[in-house]
């Protein structure tokens, strides 16, 4: 573990500095400063949650496809099977695996995003 400071602490320090100077910036730069602060938040969440999310995604895709591989290999394989029609919306377990993966991805990218509501069962 590299610490004193940890990577998250460095990110927080930079984010805090951006916040402090934002009010002095012209409107365009103030907007970009907000985007930059958001980018740091994404990095922070990815540092904390990324490894577990990727491991879980790999496991789900492995189970769905019946093979091992990295998450990139498994995603590529799944894309090929979907493109060739070997799998589609009605393939058992497909939507559940994709949903679980994307829920963890959006928790990193945009945790406050309010997704399309599910239809009540």
């Amino acid at each position: 573990m590299i610490d004193h400071p940890r990577a998250e602490e460095l990110l927080d320090a930079v984010a805090g500095w951006i916040d402090g100077v934002r009010s002095e910036l012209n409107p365009r730069d103030a907007f970009l400063a907000r985007v930059a602060a958001n980018a740091l938040s994404v990095v922070r969440r990815e540092l904390v949650q990324g490894a577990a999310a990727e491991a879980a995604a790999t496991q789900r895709l492995s189970a769905l496809l019946g093979r091992d591989g990295s998450v990139a290999e498994l995603n590529a394989d799944l894309c090929t099977r979907l493109r060739e029609g070997a799998m589609d919306r009605d393939t058992p377990g497909l939507l559940a695996a994709l949903k679980a993966n994307i829920v963890e991805q959006i928790a990193i990218d945009q945790p406050n995003y309010a997704p399309e509501p599910g239809r009540p069962a």
Partner: peptide
């Protein structure tokens, strides 16, 4: 080169969660 462009790339996942939900909804 703006910081805005790469961050928009992290909005792809919002469309993916909406698409998978629409598919689940039938």
């Amino acid at each position: 080169v703006s910081v805005e462009r790469p961050m928009i790339g992290r909005r792809v996942s919002e469309t993916e969660i909406d698409l998978v939900t629409l598919l689940e909804n039938g």
